[in-house]
Amino acid sequence: MHTFRCVGAPGRLLVTAGPAGPHERFFAEIGEPADRTSPPAHEGPPDVERPVAAAARHGIEILPPS
């Protein structure tokens, strides 16, 4: 189990996963196109239910924070 945390200024995370398959389809479903000039996609609290539900559809388990 692992986690990522952004402390301070808004940040972005680039994730790579291999082999392709469930992970690729999961990120395609929940992701939003971005480039280096794009502002942060969302303000306010994150929508946790959306990626958790998508993960379940793709056979991925997202664990609650420890």
Rank of each mutant, 00 (worst) to 15 (best):
P22D: 12
H42P: 00
G8F: 02
P46F: 09
S38A: 13
S38R: 11
P19Q: 07
P33R: 05
A28Y: 00
P19L: 05
A9F: 03
G59Y: 09
A56C: 04
S38V: 02
R57N: 12
A28D: 10
I30C: 01
A53P: 02
A20W: 06
T37I: 05
G18C: 04
R57M: 14
A34T: 14
G31V: 06
D35V: 00
A53R: 15
D47V: 03
L14N: 10
P45D: 11
A54R: 12
A20Y: 08
F4A: 09
A41N: 09
H2T: 00
P46D: 11
R12H: 14
A41E: 06
P45K: 15
V7Q: 06
G31S: 01
D35A: 13
H23G: 10
R12D: 05
G21K: 02
L14T: 15
F26Y: 07
P51D: 00
I30E: 08
E61D: 14
G21P: 08
R5L: 09
E49I: 06
H42D: 00
H23L: 14
R12S: 02
T16M: 12
V7I: 15
S66L: 15
P51K: 14
M1S: 14
E32G: 01
H58Y: 04
G44D: 11
P10C: 01
H23C: 13
I60Q: 04
V52Q: 10
E61M: 09
P33I: 00
D47Y: 05
R57A: 15
A41H: 09
P46K: 02
L14E: 08
P51A: 04
I30T: 06
